[in-house]
């Protein structure tokens, strides 16, 4: 997306000139295509294998609980709230973990879902 570093213009009529004569037009066209491509609002993740899906969901869930428990332990260390900081933040961490899992699954499903615009096969009367 920056200026070409080789700023010597090739001689008009030479091979290199013919190859690059319409380069600007082509770049402009490519940029136009890119801008025209509707950027989906929903973030999408590439297709993942089942193994890494599982690892991803598991680590999202466990990480939130670890963070909750760690924060709760810290809160209890510095405030006279023992044992409630740990209990409350651990439960909140659990909730955050579930939220993480739901969000990650929604992302994965959005990535693998068939776009609605593709013509569906002739269907039975089930919808």
């Amino acid at each position: 997306m920056s200026e070409p570093r080789d700023d010597k213009r090739p001689e008009p009529g030479s091979d290199a000139h013919r190859a690059t004569a319409d380069l600007e037009a082509r770049i402009a066209r490519a940029r136009g295509q890119r801008a025209a491509e509707a950027v989906p609002e929903q973030t999408r993740t590439g297709d993942l294998s089942g193994l890494s899906r599982g690892f991803r969901l598991g680590s999202e869930f466990v990480a939130a609980i670890i963070v909750g428990a760690g924060l709760g332990y810290l809160v209890d260390m510095f405030l006279p709230t023992r044992p409630w900081g740990l209990v409350v933040l651990l439960l909140l961490g659990f909730a955050a973990g579930v939220v993480n899992v739901v969000r990650a699954t929604a992302q994965m499903n959005a990535a693998t879902a068939v776009p609605k615009t593709t013509p569906a096969l002739p269907d039975d009367e089930d919808d």
């Binding site: 609980i65 023992r82 740990l86 659990f94």
Partner: peptide, 22 residues
């Protein structure tokens, strides 16, 4: 999943309570 796992988390809470807060 959340309700089931909550039971497991409760026992984790008890374990942490015993370890760090008793």
């Amino acid at each position: 999943f959340a309700v089931t796992e909550a039971m497991g988390i409760f026992s984790l809470v008890i374990a942490f309570l015993l370890l760090y807060a008793v």
